[in-house]
Design a binder for these strands. Sequence first.
DNA 1: TTAAATTTGTGAATCAATTCACACTTTATT
DNA 2: AATAAAGTGTGAATTGATTCACAAATTTAA
Lengths: 208, 208
Amino acid sequence: MTKLPGKTIERLSQYRRSLLVCVENGKDYIFSHELAELHHITPVQVRRDLMLLAYSSVYRKGYPVRQLIEAIGTKLESPEGQNVAIMGMGNLGSALSQYLASVRPKLKVVAGFDVDSSKSGKIISGVKCHALSELKSIIDSENISIGIMTVPQSAAIEACELLCKAGIKGILNFTHVSLTVPDNVFLEEYDMITSLEKVAYFVKQSEE
Amino acid sequence: MTKLPGKTIERLSQYRRSLLVCVENGKDYIFSHELAELHHITPVQVRRDLMLLAYSSVYRKGYPVRQLIEAIGTKLESPEGQNVAIMGMGNLGSALSQYLASVRPKLKVVAGFDVDSSKSGKIISGVKCHALSELKSIIDSENISIGIMTVPQSAAIEACELLCKAGIKGILNFTHVSLTVPDNVFLEEYDMITSLEKVAYFVKQSEE
DNA sequence: TTAAATTTGTGAATCAATTCACACTTTATT
DNA sequence: AATAAAGTGTGAATTGATTCACAAATTTAA
């Protein structure tokens, strides 16, 4: 299967969320320009992305919503699902567990880890919390392939190394520390402060 | 002043964080290839970005760290600072307040808002919380130009409209709802689930 | 059943971001 | 000094993402 560009993957994921809302509202078909408007992009962009799914619409009626959701799912997800661990069960980790629990059946948060050993054994936001010492064995036994880093800066590098050593395949890093991982681990970094500074910059610009 | 591309702004923000760490470690000069390595990009990319700052290095010694931090700050921030409001003081809102309080003196979180009126008047993660009915008056009196959306989906659209009507200039949206704002409001959207699905996709790919 | 109106899919063109390649400056070395 | 080594700054080339422009398909209307 050919590898889609990251940008396209991101948009497909977002289209899917909109499409799920369509289903709730009983909307069966959607035009490229409708989907485009929802996401503030051009209809051509939408069609280009859907082209890569090798998915064809019924002419003049738009894309059948359910089938499109299905097609996106096939591209994005593996049929068996993937298991996720959250490193750092503070506010951010808890927020993420809650979001994820609700709507992504193929991405299951099956374990949380925290240095604070008083959290061990407790269930926080629906996720069972463990001590770091158990990491390796739980990653193995629960078949966890993805780790989300929501620990404080000071703990970031160590937590990342633990994950890599435990054989994780992908890491999503919300820490403000730029991590380094082996080649066989996929790393996605996102920094909220950077986003906020970007907004601040463009607001400043618009005021000049 | 010329408008820099968003991508460059993001990287400058990240460089600055690394540079602040350098200062802590007593490092006075840094080469483009060092900064590049920290961020997993090429040295040319770093130099291109710094070029846009119209900032020149001392040959053969690298860039003077403190002056560079200064130069980036001048581009990114307005000298008077900018005030920020957080919409939705749940786990995510709290996490953000904490992060921001610590390290960005020019971006001050001065108010939080929540539908849950029992939070009104309380201080959560260092931020005073208010009822939504007070929004307009506080945005004005506190001179708030940026809003961060961390409310649940159901409340997103309404909260966004309130912000826009109150005259906000920029919005950072962590909601899973794609928002629509007037032309004069800068909108940055970030969806954590999308990022996670991206990681999941590339992990799946690497396993085939 | 013909013509007009929509909407899709896509080659080609454009625009944006990144990398290449190299001239230039400085420092270190002989 | 002259030569080598290390870094920077940047025009030109490349790569990647988006948009343009339009043919083909389908529905609606006359």
